[in-house]
């Protein structure tokens, strides 16, 4: 069975735990300049149907650290823009002997379809409003670094949950690892039916932030206003902006996170975004190390391979 990283929902707590441990360990070794096992001779394709410089760079950095060769695809000006189907694109990449695929697509579920035809591992770099698993792993590693755990934490996810893959992946990960998830936002930006999503709904920021250990803000897409979902950015900011001041409602050592790109003065004020509690830059950096772990893991390796590597290194 080929391993994929299509989402967090389909992973069990053991796999998530292993990915996080691997991510933490890769980080320590990279920062300390210590050796770690590489994945040479493998080639990974970066297939971004939606532009995303930051996510692409994070995956490329991770791939380089772990020794993978990278092939980049631009969807503009390629066969895909000439009407080639996703299936045929994926089959082409398969027989161009790529070993793994990192894929971003505007349609929920598209990476799962790609995985059916590709043969090798597929890593979801964001699909529609479905999942963004690497983001959630990076965020979790960031929380663990500060809090030492996920279990028992109260995490408030604030903003446009309905259209957010980051919200879904984080909610799955946190709840599977024993945290309590709250979804906070206006009714128009929360899914109308929450029965299958792991978290409680709060329409009001004060109750949503009450005693929270972590606040995760989501990006507000400006086009939401034209859909009649938000009357104005100013109103959204007035009701849901996380500020240094309203963080008083949260636990005293509450952490503030944002997946980026940040609309300053909308989701967060400057003080909250740049303050001591803000982990935004840590999230970016940790995103690289969990992606190293993801590559290592989808190629069938795990913690025990890392230990074996260390034994062999010691012997050599």
């Amino acid at each position: 069975m080929t391993r994929h990283l299509l989402g967090i929902r389909s992973l069990d707590a053991d796999s998530i735990g292993e990915l996080l441990r691997l991510g933490g360990e890769f980080k320590r070794r990279v920062l300390d300049g210590r050796p770690f096992p590489a994945l040479p001779t493998k080639t990974v394709g970066m297939l971004f149907f939606e532009d995303s410089t930051r996510t692409r760079v994070a995956f490329e950095q991770a791939a380089k650290y772990i020794g993978l060769n990278i092939v980049n695809f631009t969807t503009r000006g390629s066969s895909m823009s000439k009407g080639e189907s996703l299936k045929d694109t994926i089959l082409t990449l398969r027989y161009e002997r790529l070993n793994a695929l990192v894929m971003r697509h505007r349609q929920s579920g598209a990476p799962r379809l790609a995985a059916r035809f590709f043969g090798g591992p597929v890593l979801n770099a964001g699909d529609g409003a479905h999942e963004h698993p690497a983001q959630a792993l990076g965020d979790a590693l960031t929380i663990i670094e500060r809090k030492g755990r996920l279990e028992g934490l109260v995490v408030a996810i604030v903003g446009d949950v309905q259209h957010s893959r980051v919200a879904r992946s984080n909610a799955w990960l946190l709840s599977k690892m024993g945290a309590e998830v709250r979804f906070v936002g206006p009714k128009t930006l929360l899914p109308s039916h929450m029965a299958l999503l792991p978290g409680r709904v709060h329409y009001d920021l004060a109750s949503g932030l009450d005693n929270a250990d972590v606040v995760m803000c989501l990006r507000l897409q400006k086009e939401r206003m034209f859909d009649g979902l938000v009357s104005s950015v100013a109103e959204y900011a007035r009701l849901y902006q996380v500020t240094q001041q309203n963080l008083e409602w949260a636990a005293p050592d509450c952490l503030v996170m944002h997946p980026g790109p940040l609309n300053r003065g909308v989701e967060l004020d400057d003080e909250a975004a740049d303050g001591d509690r803000s982990l935004i830059t840590n999230q970016i950096e940790n995103g690289i190390f969990v992606r190293m772990a993801a590559f290592y893991w989808v190629f069938g390796h795990g913690w025990h391979d890392l230990e074996r590597f260390d034994r062999e290194e010691a012997r050599a």
Binding site: S108, G128, R165, R168, P191, S192, H193, L197
Partner: peptide
């Protein structure tokens, strides 16, 4: 259908 499954899958719903 706009329901709990569409919410889970991140698919736009038809109410």
């Amino acid at each position: 259908n706009d329901g709990s499954v569409s919410a889970m899958l991140g698919l736009p719903g038809i109410p």
